Computed example of a mutant assay.
Amino acid sequence: MTSTPDAPVALPLTRLKGRYVAPDGTPLAGTLLFAPPSVLTLPESDVISTTAAKVTLDNEGSFEVPLIPTDTPGMSPQRWTYQVTERFKGLPPRVYHILLPASPFAVDLADIAPVSPYAGNYLPVSGPRGPKGEPGAPGEVSVEQLGALEARVAPKPQEFAQGAPSTEWMITHSMPYRPSVLVYDTSGREIGGSVEYPTPTTVTVRFAYAETGSAILH
């Protein structure tokens, strides 16, 4: 399992854990990438976070990593999600978003990961169930409210195509937050670029040389 450097004392962290096995119980091998917005500022902790956290599954298919909770007060931006990229041996990559609440206890990814149509290829295993709680008060949720919640928590990826060579790609999106951007050339190879967010609904990707290809916003 990948180790992480000690965090500043004032930095709030929640431990996220999980375990992945194949349908026959064989532990999976691979990595997970937890990407916050490109720049995450925590003024009260005097911290600026600009990189994603990468972890490697151990021999049992398990991982545990300390992450900044998405509901930490005073952050900029607010109301953001982690983009999770799963890359496991023998399986296609999967990308989705999660909200990670602050907790003094470890949070299991199996309890907060969204359901995917192709999630049957592997099985996140959660820990033992706790005692059943008291039933809550009945409530009503409309179809419109469910749709709005789904769009905010796990919006669908948006694609962009750049047909003419350019050193600057201007991308318009409808995400409710600053999206993470994956950029590919015309052969499907992932390439790097400088990502900027000039407005809440636009993304600019800059390159050293003129490029054509596509981008996926998560």
Rank of each mutant, 00 (worst) to 15 (best):
D111K: 00
L40S: 08
F160E: 09
T14Q: 12
F207M: 00
M1E: 05
S180N: 12
E144W: 02
G188L: 02
P165E: 06
Y96E: 08
P138V: 12
H173Q: 04
G192V: 12
E159F: 04
Q78F: 04
H97P: 04
T51V: 04
T199L: 01
P37T: 02
R189N: 12
L42R: 05
E211C: 08
R79L: 14
V203L: 05
A164L: 13
V195K: 01
I48G: 03
T85Y: 13
L182M: 11
L32M: 08
I112A: 13
A210N: 06
L123M: 10
G18T: 00
A102C: 09
V21D: 10
P155S: 02
V47K: 11
T199W: 12
S214C: 05
T204M: 08
V143P: 04
G90F: 06
I171K: 07
R178S: 13
P69R: 00
Q158I: 05
M1D: 04
E86P: 05
I68N: 06
I112S: 08
V203K: 02
T14W: 12
G127Y: 01
F207T: 00
A137D: 05
A215H: 06
F105Q: 11
T51G: 06
P23Q: 10
A119I: 08
L57N: 11
H218N: 13
H97G: 10
Q83F: 13
T81Y: 00
P93R: 10
E44I: 07
P12E: 01
Y20R: 09
P198A: 02
L57A: 13
P66R: 12
S116F: 03
N59Y: 03
S76L: 07
V125E: 10
G213I: 14
P5I: 14
R189I: 12
V203P: 04
G192D: 11
R178T: 15
A29S: 09
R15D: 05
T4V: 15
V39I: 09
P77Q: 10
V125I: 11
R79K: 15
S45E: 15
L32A: 06
V115F: 11
F88L: 04
T81Q: 01
E211H: 12
Y197E: 02
V203S: 03
V55I: 11
A113F: 01
E140S: 06
G30S: 11
T41L: 15
G120D: 08
V95L: 14
T72G: 05
A137P: 07
Q158A: 12
G18Y: 02
A154M: 07
E150Q: 11
A148F: 02
V39D: 13
Y177Q: 01
S187P: 14
R206S: 11
Y122R: 02
S3Y: 03
G139P: 04
W80S: 06
P69T: 10
W80R: 04
P155A: 05
G136A: 15
S194M: 14
G133D: 00
P165V: 01
T186V: 09
L99F: 04
V181F: 07
V21T: 13
Y122M: 02
Y118K: 15
L33E: 15
T31R: 08
V183L: 15
G25C: 09
D58K: 05
L67A: 01
K89F: 05
P8A: 03
G188K: 03
L16Y: 11
K17I: 15
G18C: 03
A53L: 10
S38A: 15
A52C: 00
S194I: 15
M170H: 00
T4W: 14
